[in-house]
């Protein structure tokens, strides 16, 4: 029971943030940060078991566009549209994942197949421009007066609570997975697929479970991001660019720790915004430039991310156990 106190207290404290009436800009950064963290958390679930996807943008896009199209064309509220979008993305994930895992597409090949899938979704959105608005993007219709709540159109504070709940759901999914047999099976699969199969682990099934979970979180993040911004765009919700950004969030923060992607998201958003404030909008390339350098440096010097660094510090201190370490299986350790 004592394990519950800290998370609940942190969540309660975070839920009170809007009551301090912080400036709108600050709230905007926090909401964006949480949703980015959620997408990163979804990616890291797969990434830490060496299933590196370069196509998670596709699932953000499917989640967001299914929700947006249902609202704009059929008037189906995002409260329903978001779960439907997530379900559609999970379906797409299964469609891609099943043959991949069954036919043992792994490593580089898996990364490139997912990259192709991500591009397919982006190009489909662009090509179906009569319906989706193509590369110009799509704006969900404003809710009729009085119907804002039913249409999930909130002010920043309202969305903060939605995003917070979604983010907490992501961390909960991580924890549930960590304590399940599936995580142990996946750790074995990541080490050696043949050996895992030979001791009776159903490789395809375990990988599919993981994929469904990971895709669902990414799609949830995509749908909520689209709804929060009230603007959907194929470049920012599908394709290689956004997929790599999700990867960056997870890697920089650390994909072996549940809180890692959140740290990564805060760094990413903080970096982007401070560069924007410092240089103005004409230096839009600066953020990507600094990201890229950081990604390279992280890979070379800190492959476990910032959370990995913090954990190492905590572990080095004698007499203190790692927070949340009991019952968790260390995911795949990178050598060195």
């Amino acid at each position: 029971m004592s394990g519950l106190v800290l998370p609940v207290a942190v969540l309660a404290a975070l839920a009170c943030v809007p009551l301090l009436s912080p400036p709108d800009y600050f709230m905007h950064l926090l909401v964006t940060g949480l949703l980015t963290a959620l997408a990163g958390t979804g990616w890291a679930l797969m990434g830490r078991y060496r299933l590196v996807s370069f196509g998670h943008g596709a699932f953000l896009g499917i989640g967001a566009y299914v929700m947006g199209l249902l609202w704009n064309y059929y008037g189906i509220s995002p409260w329903l549209g978001v779960p439907i979008g997530v379900a559609a993305a999970v379906g797409a994930g299964l469609l891609l994942g099943y043959p991949c895992f069954q036919l043992r597409v792994v490593g580089h090949y898996f990364a490139l197949v997912t990259l192709a899938a991500g591009e397919i979704v982006r190009i489909l959105i662009v090509a179906l421009r009569d319906v989706t608005g193509g590369s110009l993007g799509m704006t969900p219709h404003q809710a009729p007066p009085g119907g804002a709540f039913a249409a999930m159109q909130f002010d920043k504070a309202g969305f903060w609570w939605v995003a917070l709940a979604a983010w907490a759901l992501g961390l909960l999914a991580w924890r549930v997975l960590d304590r399940s047999m599936t995580s142990k099976a996946l750790a074995a699969i990541a080490e050696d697929e043949d050996a895992a199969a030979s001791i009776g682990i159903r490789v395809t099934r375990e990988k599919l479970k993981l994929t469904m979970l990971s895709v669902a979180l990414a799609a949830l993040a995509g749908a909520l991001t689209g709804q929060y911004r009230m603007y959907l765009n194929p470049e920012s919700l599908a394709g290689l660019g956004i997929s790599l950004q999700i990867v960056f969030v997870a890697i920089a923060g650390g994909m072996y720790s549940p809180i890692g992607p959140t740290i990564g998201a805060l760094i990413t958003i903080g970096l982007e915004e401070s560069l924007r404030v410092a240089f103005g909008t004409q230096f839009t390339g600066a953020a990507a430039f600094v990201y890229g350098i950081l990604l390279v440096l992280f890979m070379i010097f800190l492959p476990r991310g910032i959370a990995g660094l913090l954990e190492r510090r905590a572990a080095a201190r004698p007499g203190r156990r790692l927070a949340g370490a009991e019952g968790t299986v260390p995911a795949v350790q990178p050598p060195g």
Binding site: V52, H108, A111, L244, A288, P303
Partner: peptide, 21 residues
């Protein structure tokens, strides 16, 4: 000597660097 995925991600970082530059 790093896992292949780390190598790919590092060159992905270079992609951002070149686009940004």
């Amino acid at each position: 000597a790093a896992p292949p995925i780390n190598q790919v991600l590092a060159t992905g970082g270079v992609l951002f660097v070149l686009q940004g530059a």
